[in-house]
Amino acid sequence: MSALRRPPPLAVVAVVALAVLMLVPMLWVLILSFKDNTALLADTASAFVPPYTFANYRNIMGEGQVFTWLMNSVIVSLAMTAGVLIVSSLAGYGFARLEFPGRKILFVVVLFGLAIPEQAVIIGRHQIFSALSMHNSYTALVVPGLSMPFGVFLMTQYFRAIPVEIDEAAMLDGASRFRIFWRILLPLTIPAQATLGIFTFFQAWNDYWWPLISATDGQMYTLTVGIAATQVNFAQAEGLGFLMAQAVFAGLPTLIVYLIFQKYIVRAVAGAAGQ
């Protein structure tokens, strides 16, 4: 039995080789970030030999911009995560448990929303926020993400899976709808909350097109847009090593979060799709 489930050695070798290929580009960027810009201009192969320097990282620390962007990304991602969790939980409970006129048809409409890609609505969204003069704000960066039907769909499915007997028992004790939702059912949905939260957080963190056209003020850039702006600058004034240090700096927070919460993240992503 156990012999059968152990993968064939050739496959293991192949997978390890692939893993090395996964790591090599990251390591390459990492060593470039510790090199002097002028040395790299002459020859990037110099990255394989000392001297190495922390100068690029010191320069990032000396420059406030990246921190502003990082902060924006953190705020936007957390706010969007919180918002999606609240709104989707309420709606999920409503659709799964409550009776109200139009419930079925509304749910079908929301399901239809699952099929609408961001690209089909982004122009309209841009027009709406333009008309309200609300671009370059956290509101503009966060609110569109709250309309994702996926969260509602996920939470509805999850609430449906909770036995109705639990509500009924509480109802007999005279608990209100909201109390049942808040005190009794919501705690039972924590695994789904984790799934949805992590999913939303990474999606918000990596969002590119919307912040690119909405957050056009350097103070409002998210990290993703800010790094893009430095990346395609006509005059690569900052130098390669600095650019690489910035990439490392931008990638590190999510990598660390990932490594700490690895188990939950993997479970969450798999859980989201399982629904």
Partner: peptide, 13 residues
């Protein structure tokens, strides 16, 4: 972990 790690990087990185 190695195979999943790159997924958390943003497109610009």
């Amino acid at each position: 972990a190695v195979f999943f790690a790159s997924t958390v990087l943003s497109v610009t990185v």
